[in-house]
Computed example of a mutant assay.
Amino acid sequence: MIAPYLTDINRQIVALVGSGTVLSAFVKNVGALAMFMPIAAVAKRASRCQC
């Protein structure tokens, strides 16, 4: 669906931050962070970034 658009690391960061911002509007900030930490870890491994 949106995977072809998230090939660049900057786009992935924007997508994660934007999604976390929208989610934190509805749940507590710590809860939103806890939900997105595994997603960010998987995205990091998949990107093959040397960060």
Rank of each mutant, 00 (worst) to 15 (best):
Y5N: 06
A25F: 09
L23D: 04
G31P: 03
G20F: 05
C49S: 08
M1T: 07
V17I: 14
R45C: 04
I13W: 11
M35E: 11
V42L: 10
N10R: 13
D8C: 08
C49Y: 05
A3Y: 02
A41W: 00
K44T: 04
N29D: 15
T7R: 05
G18I: 07
A34T: 09
C49H: 07
V22I: 12
L16E: 08
V30P: 07
V17M: 13
V30E: 13
A25P: 00
G31I: 10
A3L: 09
M1Y: 01
A15V: 10
I2N: 10
L33F: 12
P4G: 01
K44N: 05
P38A: 01
G20N: 07
P4Y: 03
D8P: 03
G20I: 08
Q50I: 06
I9Q: 09
R48T: 01
S47A: 07
M35H: 09
A34C: 10
K44M: 04
M1S: 09
G20K: 06
R11H: 12
L33V: 15
I2W: 09
M37I: 11
Q12L: 10
G18M: 06
I13N: 11
T21E: 14
L23G: 03
I13P: 07
A41C: 01
V42Y: 02
A43P: 00
S19W: 12
F36L: 12
T21G: 15
G18S: 08
F26E: 13
N29Y: 12
S47C: 03
Q12R: 15
A41E: 03
R45Q: 05
A25R: 13
V27L: 12
V22W: 15
V42K: 02
A46F: 02
M37P: 00
N10Q: 14
A25I: 12
T21H: 12
R48P: 00
T21D: 15
R45L: 06
F26N: 14
K44G: 04
S19D: 10
G18F: 14
Q12A: 09
L16C: 11
P4H: 02
V17L: 14
V22A: 13
Q12E: 07
M37N: 02
C51R: 13
V30W: 10
G18A: 05
L6T: 04
K28H: 12
K28C: 10
V27T: 13
M35R: 06
C49T: 10
P38V: 01
M1R: 07
L6C: 08
S24M: 05
K28S: 14
V22M: 14
A32S: 13
K44L: 04
F26I: 09
G31F: 08
Q50W: 02
I39L: 07
A40S: 04
L6E: 03
Y5S: 07
R11T: 10
Q50E: 00
V27F: 03
L6V: 05
G31K: 15
I9F: 11
D8A: 12
A34W: 05
F36K: 02
G20S: 06
R45H: 02
I13A: 15
I13L: 14
V22P: 05
A3Q: 03
I2M: 09
M35N: 05
Y5V: 08
A43Q: 01
